[in-house]
Design a protein around this nucleic acid. Sequence first.
DNA 1: CCCCAGTCCTGCGGGC
DNA 2: TGCCCGCAGGACTGGG
Length: 282
Amino acid sequence: MPELPEVETMRRGIAVIAGKRIANVRRVACRRRPIYVAPSIPTFRRRVLGQTVATVDRLGKRIVLRLASHDAIVIEPRMTGLVLLAAPPSTEHLRWALDFEGPAAKSLLYWDRRGLGSVRLFRPAELQSTFGPPALGPDALAITVEQLRENLGKSRREVKPALLDQKAVAGIGNLYASEILFLAGVHPQTRCDRLTLRQWISIHHSLGAVLREAIRYEGSTLSDGTYRNALNKAGGYQNQHRVYDKESAPCPQCGNAIERIVQTQRSTFFCRRCQTRRNRTS
DNA sequence: CCCCAGTCCTGCGGGC
DNA sequence: TGCCCGCAGGACTGGG
């Protein structure tokens, strides 16, 4: 479930590889089906060996290693992928590794329990066409309220599933969508085209507030314990969740029971009393 | 064009 | 106690 805060925390944790030269790239733990690595390892190796990692960036929920050659390694963790510079949670699900030159250089490891993630190498033009606009919307930490309204304001979709649309705004996933709408006081089933300007401003504000707060706590490690930072340490934001995975628990604002509904096959958690379809009066 | 159901994958928890 | 099924939700595909 890595969303923007988790991917950003992982990115910061591996940022020290910037400036290092790549000595090798390899698959690991071959007993498991390898994750999707493209191009094939020999081609991958030929194009990255000896290259310097120029920057360690984030594109929505993906980590991007830009190389001096202008090629980019894009790591997409999807549900259970982790990027590590320390020992992984298990050796069994270790999938891929990048080694660096230098006697004490730690390898960058990609670990993925379910194996839905991918590691891909892109040329600049491919990176742009795959992840540039309009394929990917503005980053959730940088989007303006005007952009948010422009991208979703005319949509007939319900606002909660709409916030998961990476073409509209990049980085929000199922967990943070519920948290954002709770803080904004907006009912998750409100149609986007029926939201008022005031509500869009509130959603936009909450979006930044929740994601920045979650980054400060180094992301959410849910009960399955999968998510870890680059040093294999759990996050802390799960203890700050207001509604996510809290069905029947009291609302932190009013004490009413938190409800769980399903929207486009995904769980949504919200408080019926605090989250309305119209402007709150207070 | 817009939007949604189905798909991939593994580990787990609930029910019997 | 042990087994099995359903569920978790990233992003992509196909189709209505």
